[in-house]
Design a protein around this nucleic acid. Structure first.
Lengths: 191, 191
DNA sequence: TTATAATATATTGGTTCGATATATCTAAAG
DNA sequence: CTTTAGATATATCGAACCAATATATTATAA
């Protein structure tokens, strides 16, 4: 799914500006599962406009800068449908945090704890957010994705909370065993 | 975490060729959480070599093409440590499948079921794979990441398996309600 | 004998990301 | 009351990245 298709998907939910599309990937229903920045969205919208997949109308506003509101065309909806019927690529995740936790032994404890706790509170707030949403009148597909997300956030938060103390304890034990092995006798004065 | 840092991380586990580094992102301990292709890895290794972060030795082999085996230097390890002490970026996931499930109403049932079942068996095989690994002698960080992964895979597989029938039933009901609403009386002959 | 898969390196073109620039208004802090 | 910060809004540039492809050899399977 390239950014053009993602934009078509957002516009399927209703007319939007580039700015509003970006917000959908930050706070809206696509958050966490898909994302795109301005540097991809604005060129994508121009290309879609050029190909007749969307229309654009200018809207002047009181005070705030002018908007360009985009709307899906029939051709755009057809293109979205076609893209949705292709083979999905495998999920692609890039997690700096998990990369850091993998190398936990190389981190100083302050940084490690801050990273760990930041990850935990991130998933907690994701879960709280999804739980706070109103599910009435939502389509089955959107509801399913929302519930799957909630399940995922909760699992991560719970796991991180429950394994916190054990993880740090095991790291500590491992660190001590390492330094003991280095000094040889276990009676070393350190360094 | 750019690809250069990811390569340093892989090389921290032991000497490797570009080809072997790629495999680490496909089957190895970094699978699912991080990934990189040849188009990023080979240029990254050249840059790291240029900056003295790695050394490279040529190895001729019987039959197979020659290898270039890379090894982390002290400077490389220092750079890795520094990168691990930065602020982690938020997780970035791109899931075509979840995007498709979100728009389930727009998909024909065959495609939807194939996509759903493909996703389920993907997580099942991920879980089986992690479960089959030997955990003896592993560092606490690696073990933690492995267990977190297993928990995640299992959660996804279980959720998808348990909600399968209900999801398709609700979609069906929704589809019928839609077509009834369109024809107005509920006695429409279709079209 | 032919095709497929695995090992191994490398490049190219297109896509995408992060940072930055510009501009206006609102709300909060001083 | 004035400055600062934050939200709204569009846009672009260069760097980074990815998917596909090219090349070459060997082993295995059909």
């Amino acid at each position: 799914m390239d950014v053009k298709t993602l934009c078509l998907g957002v516009l399927k939910l209703g007319d939007a500006t580039g700015y509003e599309i970006k917000k959908q990937f930050e706070e809206g229903p696509f958050a966490y599962f898909n994302q795109a920045g301005f540097g991809s969205i604005y060129p994508a919208l121009n290309a879609l406009l050029n190909d007749g997949m969307v229309t654009c109308r200018d809207e002047r506003q009181q005070g705030r800068p002018d908007k360009k509101v985009y709307r899906l065309t029939a051709a755009g909806e057809a293109a979205l449908t076609a893209a949705l019927h292709g083979r999905p690529a495998l999920d692609k995740l890039r997690s700096d945090t998990i990369f850091m936790l993998f190398f936990a032994e190389m981190l100083d404890e302050t940084h490690l704890r801050a990273t760990y706790d930041g990850y935990l509170s991130y998933f907690r707030s994701c879960f709280e957010h999804v739980r706070s949403l109103d599910n009435t009148g939502i389509t089955p597909g959107r509801l399913f994705v929302r519930d799957l997300g909630a399940e995922f956030y909760e699992t991560m938060a719970t796991y991180l909370a429950e394994h916190r103390e054990r993880f740090f304890a095991e790291l500590d034990a491992h660190q001590k065993a390492e330094s003991t092995a280095k000094t040889g006798t276990g009676m070393g004065t350190g360094r």
